[in-house]
Every structure is written in C-alpha cells, then in structure tokens.
Amino acid sequence: MPKSPADNVIALYREHAAAFEKNRNQAFIERTWLNQFLDLLPGSRLDVLDIGCGSGAPMARYLIQNGCGVTGVDTSLPLLARARESFPEQRWIAADMRQMPVVGPFHGLLAWHSFFHLSPEDQRPMFATFRRLAAPGAVLMFTSGTRLGEVICQFEGKPLYHGSLDTSEYQELLSANGLAVVRHVEGDATCGGATVWLAKWIGEGCFRARLDT
C-alpha cells in the first residue's frame, strides 16, 4: 500500500535537506516571537528543547546567542550534522518527536514549523509529552493551523503534509495540561502568515488567553 504524505515527511527532509536549509535561511522573521519566548523563560539557567530543530539556524542559533542551552531533536540526519558542526557545544538528537527520547526538564519547548507536520491523531497526545518534559513555569511555543484537517503543499516537487486541530481543541488541550495562553495570533502577517501559540505552565486546569486576530 502506498504511503500517505504524512508518512513521507521524514524522508522528504532527509532527501532534500540542502534545499530546505537554503530556503529556511533566506530570512529571519521570527525574531519578535523568539524575544517574547525568551522573556517568559523562568530562572537563570535556560534549557530549551527545540523540537524539529533542523540545522539549528536561525532559531536555535538565536536562542544560543541569548544564553540558552539547546537540545535539538530532528529526524533529518543531514540537517542534524550541520547543527552539530555549527554548534558543537549543544546537544543534537536524531529522533521522532512522537517517541521523544529526552527526559528534561526544560525551561522552554519550541516546536516551530515542525509540530504541524503531524497528523491530528498524532498531535493530540503530544501535549502530555510536552507537559512531561517541562520544568515548573516552563514556556511552550509552537505553530499550527486553525481548523481540523489536512493540507498538502509542495516541497521539491513532492507532496508535503500539514495537519491541524481546531483552534478550540488546541485551547482545550493546553488548558488540560496546565498551560495558560499568553499570546495567540492567527496568520501573523509579520511572520510569514504563521499561526503561533505562546503559552506558559501555571498549573493543572488553568487557562487564560489573549487572542490577537
């Protein structure tokens, strides 16, 4: 039976790592969001888990420059090799985020343009994984879609899968896992149209949100 586009995401980023890295590094439009993420991190020792870290540029690089220790997880061996070459003092792990091998705790968890490559069925249990890996008061930032469903784009002439839950379900999952939404923007025009969630752990069953739409 042929694989679905969701099953081919890992192979695409391995096969076309050079093309991804070239396209990814053309601009750094995420700085404002990363600054907000950094401002919320608790404590003086800032350990961040970068989920879907790629080559480490530009996201992990900026975190490192701002005093964070980074553990990066990705399935693309060529991109991880570049990360290790560029930032040898950090920790880079080849793994699928759905079987996270690290134990934490981390002060920050970042899943920028990576989490949304999972199917809706695979996204739901990830929030419990995020909670397991988080230190008290930790911060989570990720990008998503806005409606339950799947979208297939093109990358190097091949289908590239994206999955999403409804906005309301993301809110419910965050709240159920003790996260308060600090900021949520749908289709941020200043950040390439990304839909971004920035949340902080405050305890079980709590929820507070500021929506910028």
Rank of each mutant, 00 (worst) to 15 (best):
S44V: 11
S44T: 14
S44P: 10
S44Y: 03
S44D: 15
S44A: 15
R45C: 06
R45H: 14
L46T: 14
L46E: 06
L46H: 15
D47T: 11
D47P: 00
D47L: 07
D47K: 14
D47N: 13
D47F: 02
V48N: 09
V48G: 09
V48S: 11
L49D: 02
L49K: 09
L49E: 02
L49F: 09
D50W: 07
D50P: 10
D50G: 08
D50M: 07
D50A: 07
D50N: 07
D50R: 04
I51R: 12
I51V: 14
I51H: 04
I51C: 15
G52L: 14
G52E: 03
G52P: 07
G52D: 12
G52C: 11
G52I: 10
G52N: 10
C53R: 06
C53K: 03
C53E: 11
C53Y: 01
G54Q: 13
G54K: 12
G54A: 13
S55C: 03
S55F: 05
S55W: 07
S55P: 07
S55N: 14
S55R: 10
G56D: 06
G56K: 08
G56S: 06
G56P: 04
G56R: 09
A57F: 02
A57K: 14
A57Q: 15
A57E: 14
A57D: 11
A57P: 00
A57M: 05
A57H: 11
A57C: 04
A57W: 02
P58I: 01
P58F: 00
P58D: 03
P58M: 03
M59C: 03
M59T: 13
M59H: 10
A60M: 01
A60D: 03
A60N: 01
R61L: 00
R61Y: 00
R61F: 00
R61P: 00
R61N: 01
R61D: 05
Y62D: 04
Y62M: 03
Y62R: 02
Y62A: 01
L63P: 02
L63A: 08
L63M: 11
L63R: 05
L63I: 04
I64G: 10
I64T: 05
I64Q: 05
Q65W: 01
Q65P: 02
Q65E: 15
Q65Y: 01
Q65I: 01
N66D: 08
N66S: 08
N66F: 08
N66A: 10
N66V: 02
N66G: 09
G67I: 13
G67V: 12
G67W: 12
G67C: 14
C68R: 07
C68T: 10
C68W: 03
C68N: 06
G69S: 15
G69F: 13
G69E: 13
G69L: 11
G69I: 01
V70H: 11
V70R: 12
T71A: 11
T71L: 12
T71Q: 10
G72R: 03
G72T: 04
V73N: 08
V73P: 02
D74P: 09
D74Q: 07
D74K: 06
D74S: 06
D74W: 08
T75G: 15
T75Q: 15
T75P: 01
T75V: 15
T75M: 13
S76T: 06
S76D: 09
S76N: 09
S76Q: 07
S76L: 11
S76V: 06
